[in-house]
Design a binder for these strands. Structure first.
Lengths: 119, 119, 119, 119
DNA sequence: GTGGTCTAGACCACC
DNA sequence: GTGGTCTAGACCACA
């Protein structure tokens, strides 16, 4: 696993976990790797993994059973999608449209790129 | 002027200046505010404004006449557009499409939001 | 049975047992469930239940007959009440009063809530 | 400054800060000590102080100006009181009443202790 | 000067 | 074995 240096590692780990959940690699109520195990997998200090797990727990995306480990929350996917969609619609899209305006890019061009991407 | 705290202020200032140029609020060869003036306008330390101007000058988006101040470069718009368009197409768009995929958002929805935005 | 994750489970079990005794659900000299039975009831590892029973035995709230199981001590209620009352008066109440002071809550309001609670 | 060992230090620091704000030792928009300064004051590692500040910032009780430090949020007192009152009414009080019931303590006795406390 | 991140290593309670 | 807390020390970007 390689990390970009322009974003905090613990945030990238958070992202990584959420993607694994979305892809159902880690299904609901499944145990996720312990902080030590995951840390050694991706070559990151367990404390840093812990920080990511901590936030994920606050967001109710994972939960903890004392002495056993962290588990995927039953409604994790729903929560993640809800959060991300909010951000997408209220932050990402407006930014996209504003940039399009400034650069005088038409919608057609976006659609063109989209079709290229899908194929 | 309010700044987001999750991005360096000097970068937000740089962004702001580029937008003003793109919108032709500050046309080619026009004098832009001095670091002190602009700094007090937006309630930011002049040093921080200077840092933004420095980078803009390196990018040849503005130029300096000693003792007179900073001025918009004649080909500023062209430079900005070239830079931003690269980033837009090769970084922003792919990221957007990836998010759409994960959230199962169709292109139709984007078009819908776009029309809402334009009106 | 659900447990809060912010307190040790064995302590929550201890609490639970003491409440059952105080409510006389488990009267004096009655046999209480075996660690295995109780553990499977509340979905907790028998070792953890054992740890709670151990402490309860040390406190002389329950006693053990080898090969037969654990039983409620004749003076269990008295012991529990003595312990808890000390803690209640010298720890819980002062803390409560301090909070009331900080939040500017008057005694009247407490009495009001008490009446609501009783009805 | 001394800390109880039965509660995480960073939580006690959070508590301490909130009390200083409630007592208006640190008024609205005032700068609070830097993590290093406060850490050396109370003889705690700056990282631990940071953890407390982090949570306080999430709760919008303090805010950050990049490169300058942390400041008391204008509506900090209101937020703290709201939070604490919720907890008081929905957690502390029900627990109090339940304990009173179990220990067969009457309201009179509480009132008695309250008067003793006030004098 | 300020926060923010990360590591390494320690110690603890809990299951 | 698991999480959770804390320290010490390092490095960085930012104002």
């Amino acid at each position: 696993m390689q990390f970009t240096s322009d974003k905090a590692i613990y945030l990238q780990i958070k992202q990584l976990v959420m993607e694994k959940i979305l892809r159902e690699e880690w299904p609901a109520d499944a145990k996720i790797p312990s902080v030590r195990e995951f840390g050694s997998d991706i070559e990151v200090n367990p404390n840093t993994v812990m920080r990511a797990y901590d936030i994920l727990q606050q967001d109710k995306i994972i939960y903890n059973k004392r002495g056993l480990g962290f588990f995927v929350s039953p409604d994790a996917i729903e929560i993640i999608k809800r959060e991300r969609k909010q951000e997408f619609i209220h932050t990402d899209l407006p930014l996209l449209f504003k940039t399009m305006e400034l650069l005088k890019i038409e919608l057609n061009e976006i659609i063109q790129h989209y079709n290229d991407y899908k194929s």
